[in-house]
């Protein structure tokens, strides 16, 4: 007799638990306000990334097309993957002494793992993270970027 009751109580509890589960999905079905999907290409205009978002490594330039990089190469040493290459150049300054400046700061985005060591260890805070995240290209060579903008020079006083 006991097992007879157990048979029916099993059915009852089983059906009850199934109905509870269905109530969850059913409730979400009738509450379209809870939809969390973002409509990505449509919301591109007002898509705001967080300020610390690591999109890509950039060299910070000010309004006069000047940056703070003196080509010391600490970022290159700190990069675990060798995705940064610093090519320095020597110029002769106004006082006649030859001076080390950056010629090309080459950044291989395809190899970067965004560990942030270059940005953290830069002694003159020349590097930063950009907000760009749409990196897809058809040619891998386009992922190699030169970070210092053409014609840019170093800000006076940070050498």
């Amino acid at each position: 007799m006991n097992s007879f009751f157990k048979y029916f109580s099993d059915i009852f509890h089983g059906v009850k638990s199934l109905l509870i589960g269905m109530s969850v999905t059913g409730r979400y079905f009738f509450s379209p306000g809870q939809i969390v999907t973002q409509q990505y290409p449509e919301n591109r205009k007002n898509l705001q990334m967080f300020e610390r978002f690591k999109g890509e490594v950039i060299m910070l330039h000010d309004g006069n097309n000047q940056h703070r990089c003196n080509g010391c190469g600490i970022c290159e040493n700190n990069c675990p993957n060798g995705s940064i290459e610093v090519i320095p150049a020597k110029i002769t300054g106004e006082d006649g002494k030859s001076k080390r400046v950056i010629d090309k700061h080459i950044y291989h985005l395809g190899m970067c793992t965004f560990c942030g060591l270059c940005v953290k260890n830069c002694p003159s805070n020349a590097l930063g993270f950009g907000q760009e995240f749409e990196h897809a290209v058809f040619d891998r060579s386009k992922l190699t970027k030169v970070l210092n903008q053409p014609g840019s020079s170093i800000i006076k006083g940070v050498e």
Binding site: T25, G26, Y28, F29, P32, I35, V36, T37
Partner: peptide, 13 residues
């Protein structure tokens, strides 16, 4: 569409 709404998604659009 139905499963998308149950899962808080939009579904094909």
């Amino acid at each position: 569409k139905v499963c998308a709404f149950m899962q808080n998604r939009v579904g094909p659009n």
